[in-house]
């Protein structure tokens, strides 16, 4: 076996699975999506007629698409800002020693390990128009009257709030764990030094702790952002884009268009609107990864 002794050939062979994986599972579908978006292909069709930018133009004409585009941005930004804030608070709280800390950690991690569709179905029940746990509780506490209460998933704004809530609930554990890792990566000496140097809580937090976890929390946020940008499961389970397409995001709209509606080309065009944002995010991540290497 000469290969085993040839460093360069061996390194190529060992890298090949990774390259193949990227090419087949990432590159392939990506190229396919671009091709689809320029054709009139349908789910069951063999016709591959080139239609230029027609699919994109059709998408832009569609008010549901414009709404979905706005929703996607809103959904990604708002959920990630909330996640960043909440994850920071949680991570800092979890760093301290207290009784039952392991239990709290476990509870916070649970949403991450539970299958998301199960979790979201739980939320479906929480937001249900008839059996909503929140509503029954608040009615019991006499905060809502006997006849009216909010229909969480039935009013466009409330529905969006509900969706963002579930997304936050869902991505919070990972962000918390990443931040917790970042926090425990700061040597205790640094904290001690800051304390001896006279830093009080806020100075310590904003001039020492936060700047030191910033790089890793940026990575976490960016991941969460890309994740939120491309994800549809919460929308799919909670509202299926309703009421009347006001909570549709690009990913769910693309899904409904292509898999349910059969219009693969149109769906691909909708999905490809994600591309510029994701490309920017990818560049950002690469940049940060490089910086992290230097440090």
């Amino acid at each position: 076996m000469r290969l085993a002794d040839d460093e360069r050939a061996l390194s190529r062979v060992l890298l090949a699975p990774a390259v193949l994986y990227i090419a087949l599972l990432v590159g392939g579908p990506f190229v396919l999506a671009i091709i689809y978006s320029l054709t009139s292909i349908s789910l069951g069709g063999h016709s591959f007629n080139f239609v230029g930018l027609q699919n994109f133009q059709a998408a832009l004409r569609d008010p549901s698409f414009r709404r979905a585009l706005g929703n996607t941005v809103l959904f990604a930004f708002v959920s990630q800002i909330l996640v960043l804030v909440l994850a920071s608070v949680l991570a800092i709280a979890l760093q301290r020693e207290f009784r039952g800390k392991w239990l709290v950690r476990l509870l916070i991690l649970l949403p991450w390990v539970a299958p998301i569709s199960l979790g979201t179905i739980g939320w479906l029940w929480i937001f249900d128009s008839i059996y909503s746990v929140i509503n029954w509780t608040l009615r019991y506490l006499h905060i809502f009257g006997a006849t009216t209460w909010p229909i969480w998933l039935g009013q466009p704004k409330l529905a969006m709030v509900s969706i963002v809530t579930v997304q936050v609930w869902r991505t919070l554990p990972l962000a918390t764990v990443i931040l917790l890792g970042g926090l425990s990566g700061i040597p205790q000496d640094i904290h001690d030094a800051a304390e001896v140097d006279g830093a009080r809580f806020f100075r310590h937090m904003f001039q020492i702790t936060i700047p030191l976890v910033l790089p890793i929390s940026l990575v976490a946020t960016l991941f969460g952002f890309v994740f939120a940008f491309t994800d549809m499961i919460v929308v799919y389970v909670l509202t299926r884009g309703g009421p009347f397409d006001t909570t549709q995001v690009l990913a769910s709209l693309a899904f409904f268009k292509s898999v349910d509606g059969g219009d693969l080309g149109g769906g691909a065009a909708v999905a490809l609107f994600l591309l510029p944002v994701l490309a920017a995010a990818a560049v950002g991540m690469l940049h940060m990864a490089r910086r992290a290497e230097v440090t």
Binding site: P187, D189, I190, D192, A193, E195, V196, D197, G198, A199, R200
Partner: peptide, 14 residues
């Protein structure tokens, strides 16, 4: 610590 009018140098310099 901050009220004790001390300064400390750590082994890692921190």
């Amino acid at each position: 610590p901050r009220e004790r009018k001390i300064a400390m140098v750590f082994q890692s310099y921190a």
